[in-house]
Every structure is written in C-alpha cells, then in structure tokens.
C-alpha cells in the first residue's frame, strides 16, 4: 500500500513542461478503480491534502509522506452496494462523500472520522433514484431524483459530523436533470443540464427555477461542468460525449456557451478540441477554473485552457495501459490521472 517514489518525466510533443509527474500511488488491494479525488484532512493538529481512491467495494484515504510517497490511513468497506463515484465537497475538511448504486445512483453516503468515539464512520445522507449529485460550497449537497411521476431537486446542508441538517427543495423542471454546476461570480445561482439538452438556472436561496434554455441540437447529451456569470451573460462549460466531428471545430470535447438568461438565446464562444493529428472522443473529464481535463477514447488524457480553447497538454496512455480517470485536485496546479488497476499519478500542471 505504500506509494512508489517520484519519477519525473517529460512528455512528448505539446506536453513538454506543462505536466510533470510528481508522485504515484498504487492501491494494491484495488480490483477496479472507479474514482479518485482529494480531500483536506486534519489529524493531530496538522491539515494535509489527502488523496481518496475508490473501487467498487471500498474507499481509501491516503496521506502524503515526506518522501513524496503516500500512506494509506484508512479504508472504508462498502460491500452491499457498489461505489459509483466520489462527490467532492469544496471547502470541507475530514469529510468524503460518495455515490453508490448499480446502474444508477441509489444512495449517497458520507465517510468521516468521529473524534467522539475515535473511529472512522459512514452515514447515509439520502436514497432514491438519484440522477445527479454535486457538492456545493458551504458544505451543501444538491441532488436530483426521479420517481415515475415526479422529479425532486434537493439541497441538503451537512454538519461537521456529517449528519444532514434541514434541506431545501428547488423547483424541478419537467425534464430530468442529469448534471449540476455552481456559478462563479453569482453565489446564489445554480445551473443544471437536462436529458433534452436544456440548461436550467435556479436561485439557490429561494428555490425558484429562473430560466430554461436550450443548448441546440448539434451537441446532444451536453453535460454542464462549470458556469461563470459576467457582463450580464452566463457562460456555461459543457462537455459533449456524443458530439459529431465537424470541419470547422474538429471534435470538441468541451465548449463554452454564452447564454443571455433574459432572452434564453445562446451562442458558442470557444470550442476545445484536440489538436490536428490527434484523435479520440471525450469519455469523461473534470473542469476547475478555466482548466479542463478529459480522458479520451484513445486512452490518453488531454488538458485545455478553456479561455483560449487550446489543448495545453496531452498525456499518452501509460506503459501499463490506458488512462481511465482524470480529476483536478483542489487547485488546477495538480492533476490526478488514474488507471483501472488502481494506479494514480499526480502531475504538476
């Protein structure tokens, strides 16, 4: 369980100097890694940025060592329902949130350490047919769930000990909400993307559904990752797992779309595609600030500057196989890239 020493590498082509391997960890007990994330963890008076790795039946917390290696602190066992994803909670400490289920999310749990009885614990936050979940600032969690007749969109506040306090219901649209994103520059706003390629905007404070806008038919199944409010416009970062390649913009993994929420009109602003000569479609990815990273069908990881629409780094598949996961740490200075065998590489960006 102890990580390997760092091995700096230089990457080929456009990637030189932009991504540098800092350290690597390998969960030898992991059969099939499903997600990776980071969390601030405070123990014995020292607060450190730790790595969280998840496989289907367990979630492990890793602490950095002085030697650039990693030590596993604890593993939570989750044997009844498979883990689907880690749900990062921004600005929180000593709290890991996970989504579990079979084909779709059936429950959300918190993993934590209780100083009251000096033990690691887990607690159930909610159950249901959950379609989307996002950790919000100020230790809140928003999720959409669906029954045959109705959809519920709920924001839950979490206490320091993990127990959920009072929840607020947001007004649901008719269409199923499949992803959420917070809006930078507008504290009380939340956006979501729906199953029919719509973008919806809520007021988190009042629960009102403010606007429904359409992304357009050229990019089906768009998923929102991040939004920014500026100069009276709402800029939404969307990924396009099913986008068709076009001559004008190649094969866009991400697109920044400007919406005028007053009129619901929109226009594509910046396309983030692979540079000429590289192939691969978007499989999964992560966006933080103006940086986007994605795993591609080619098994590579690509990184873009969303403001320039330019691919700034490309990580080819490793000697042990394709990349499966890519996440930003709490800042875009650190990128985590994972393989299905449980290997996680930390890169400085």
């Amino acid at each position: 369980g102890v990580a390997e020493q760092l091995t700096p590498v230089l990457l080929d082509g456009l990637t030189e100097e932009s991504l540098q391997l800092v350290s690597k960890l390998k969960d030898s007990s992991s059969s099939c890694a499903v997600d990776v994330s980071t969390v601030w963890w405070e123990a014995a008076g020292s607060k450190e940025l730790c790595v969280v790795t998840a496989c289907e039946s367990s979630v492990s917390l890793w602490k950095p060592l002085a030697s650039n290696g990693w030590e596993k602190i604890y593993t939570w066992q989750l044997r009844e329902v498979p883990v689907i994803q880690i749900v990062p909670l921004p600005d929180t400490c000593n709290l890991v949130c996970i989504a579990l289920g079979d084909l779709e999310i059936g429950e959300i749990r918190l993993l934590l350490y209780s100083s009251e009885n000096d033990s690691f614990k887990q607690s159930l936050v909610r159950t249901g047919n959950i379609k989307a979940v996002l950790g919000l600032k100020d230790r809140r969690l928003v999720s959409s769930s669906r029954t045959v007749c109705e959809q519920q969109v709920e924001v839950v506040s979490l206490s320091e000990t993990g127990r959920s306090r009072d929840g607020r219901t947001l007004m649901p649209p008719e269409e199923t909400v499949l992803a959420f994103a917070e809006v930078e520059g507008l504290q009380d706003a939340l956006v979501g993307t729906t199953a029919v390629n719509g973008v919806v905007v809520w007021n988190l404070r009042t629960g009102q559904l403010l606007k429904k806008m359409h992304v357009g038919y050229s990019y089906p199944a768009s998923v929102c990752h991040q939004a920014y409010s500026d100069s009276g416009l709402l800029f939404v970062v969307l990924s396009h797992p099913h986008a068709k390649e076009s001559e004008s913009c190649g094969n866009p993994a991400f697109r920044v779309v400007a919406f005028n929420p007053k009129t619901a009109r929109s226009t594509g602003v910046i396309f983030s595609s692979l540079p000429a000569g590289h192939t691969g479609r978007y499989l999964e990815g992560d966006v933080k600030d103006a940086c986007a990273a994605a795993v591609l069908t080619s098994g590579a990881v690509a990184v873009w500057d969303l403001l320039l629409g330019r691919c700034t780094a490309l990580l080819p598949p490793g000697p042990q196989g394709d990349w499966a996961l890519v996440r930003w740490a709490t800042t875009t200075a650190c990128l985590l890239a994972g393989q299905r065998n449980g290997t996680v590489c930390l890169y400085q960006y």
Partner: peptide, 23 residues
C-alpha cells in the same frame, strides 16, 4: 458575441428573473 445575437443584455438578470419567476 454581439448583443444582436443574444438580444438585450441586463447586468442584473439574476435579480430581475428572481423577481419575475414563480416562488
């Protein structure tokens, strides 16, 4: 993008839509 593409832009869109939307 120009205003003609997107229609009239309001810097206070969030407050204005919150005042108009059903609660």
């Amino acid at each position: 993008c120009s205003e003609s593409d997107l229609g009239p832009i309001s810097l206070n869109w969030f407050e204005e839509l919150s005042a108009e939307a059903p609660s």
